[in-house]
Simulated assay, not measured.
Amino acid sequence: MPEVIFAGPEGRLEGRYHPQKQPDAPIAIILHPHPQFGGTMNNRVVHRLHYAFHELGFTVLRFNFRGVGRSQGEYDQGVGELSDAASALDYLQAMNPNSKHCWVAGFSFGAWIGMQLLMRRPEITGFISVSPPANMYDFSFLAPCPSSGLIINGTADRVAPPKDTASLVAKLREQKGITITHEEVEGAGHFFENEEDQMAPMITTVQEYVRRRLGEQTR
């Protein structure tokens, strides 16, 4: 998978870019967890999401937010990281001008950034939010939420408690014109540490959801 360096708001950003042969393949960006708590684009969940989308025929980009790895700049409380994500999407779209479908997937802090990106970019047709930290960040900006998506979390998540995720889902489901799908992985913690019982079922659920949505979007 080629390493890429592209321009961000505070200098260069480091990414991994995995293209398809088809010029009109759907595109997806994957957003990593909190930079100040060890989050990078090589996080296990992020890595698995990247390949999950690629297996479904997406051209995929994951990248390091500012100040992480070889990406320039410093942590910026989410404000600059949202700009980084917008720059990553700009880069991905410039490389794939014929793509008809655009998705964003984020894990934890990355889920919060990804859902903010939804509000900025109407071309995003679907989202995946894994373990969104609804207890730590305000998601009230999703009014209205502009696209349908999947929110998935573990029932044993101690970082972002399931009750807060359920409250977020309930609020989003009050909105008309979109469908929020909510799935829980029984016994899974925030990081889906166990491969067989936690990570694999989460990835399978994500792929089944995206496959179904793609089928609906291409009819």
Rank of each mutant, 00 (worst) to 15 (best):
M1P: 15
I5Q: 15
I5Y: 14
P9K: 10
G15V: 00
R16V: 09
Q20P: 08
K21L: 09
P23D: 14
I30R: 01
H34Y: 05
H34F: 05
G39Y: 03
G39T: 10
N43Y: 05
H47L: 15
L49F: 12
Y51L: 12
F53S: 08
E55I: 07
L61I: 00
R66M: 14
Q72T: 01
D76V: 14
D76R: 07
G78L: 05
E81C: 09
S83Q: 15
S83L: 15
A86R: 12
S87T: 11
P97I: 14
H101C: 06
V104T: 01
G106V: 00
S108A: 08
F109Q: 04
I113P: 00
M115L: 11
L117Y: 06
M119Y: 03
R120E: 05
E123Q: 08
T125I: 00
I128L: 08
S131M: 02
P132F: 05
A134V: 05
S140E: 10
L142R: 03
P146V: 09
P146E: 03
I152N: 11
N153M: 08
A156R: 03
D157G: 04
R158F: 07
R158M: 12
V159C: 13
V159W: 01
P161A: 10
T165K: 02
V169W: 07
K171S: 14
K171Y: 07
R173I: 02
R173E: 12
I178K: 05
I180R: 04
E184M: 15
E186S: 15
E186K: 15
E186A: 15
F191V: 14
F192P: 04
A200I: 13
V210F: 01
R212F: 11
R213V: 06
R213F: 03
T218Y: 08
R219N: 09
